[in-house]
C-alpha cells in the first residue's frame, strides 16, 4: 500500500475514534488484520426508521490509490433498502462513485450511509424489487425492513 493511503487511513481511524458519533454509539471502525487495506465499519440504524435498534456491519476495502479513488464499501449485514442490494449488500451512492472527492474521509462515508438509510433515493435504485415496494406499498416496505432489522441486525452497538 502506498504512503499516502496508509498515512490517511491511520489518521482517519483516529478521527473516528475521537469523533462524537462514536461517543454516541452511532458509528465505529475496526481494523481487519494490520494492513490498513481492509476495515470493518459499523453503523447504528437511524432513529425513527425501520432500521432503528439495528447494528449494520460494513466491509470496507481501501484501494491502493486511496484517497484519490473511493473506498469499496458493502453491507455485510442483510438490509432491506432501495439503494442497497438485498442479496449482495452492494450500495448505490454517488459519493462512492463519481462524486467521490479526495478530501472525503471514512467518517464522512459512514455518516452519508447513515443518512441514506434515513432517506432512501428510490429513483436511483440498487435493488429494483425493494424500490418498487418502497414506492408502491410503503407500509409493507416498512414492515419488511424492520423485520429484516430484527432478524439480521439485532444487537447493541458499543460492545
Amino acid at each position: 500500500m502506498n504512503n499516502i493511503a496508509t498515512q490517511r487511513i491511520k489518521r482517519e481511524f483516529k478521527e473516528v475514534i475521537k469523533s462524537e458519533e462514536l461517543a454516541k454509539c452511532s458509528i465505529k471502525v475496526d481494523l481487519v488484520g494490520d494492513s490498513y487495506t481492509e476495515l470493518k465499519g459499523e453503523i447504528a440504524g437511524p432513529p425513527d426508521t425501520p432500521y432503528e435498534g439495528g447494528i449494520f456491519l460494513l466491509e470496507i476495502k481501501v484501494p491502493e490509490t486511496y484517497p484519490f479513488n473511493p473506498p469499496k464499501v458493502r453491507f455485510m449485514t442483510k438490509i432491506w433498502h432501495p439503494n442497497i442490494s438485498s442479496v449482495t449488500g452492494a450500495i448505490c451512492l454517488d459519493i462512492l462513485k463519481d462524486q467521490w472527492a479526495a478530501a472525503m474521509t471514512l467518517r464522512t462515508v459512514l455518516l452519508s450511509l447513515q443518512a441514506l438509510m434515513a432517506a432512501a433515493e428510490p429513483d436511483d435504485p440498487q435493488d429494483a424489487v425493494v424500490a418498487k415496494q418502497y414506492k408502491e406499498y410503503p407500509e409493507i416496505f416498512a414492515k419488511t425492513a424492520s423485520h429484516w432489522t430484527n432478524v439480521y441486525a439485532g444487537g447493541i452497538i458499543c460492545s
Binding site: 490509490t65 484519490f68 472527492a101 479526495a102 478530501a103 472525503m104
Partner: peptide, 20 residues
Amino acid sequence: CHFENKIKQGVSTELSCMAL
C-alpha cells in the same frame, strides 16, 4: 496523484478540483 488518477480513467477537460 489526483491528475494522474483521473487521466488514467480517461478524464481530461472535466478534470476538477479535489475538494468536496
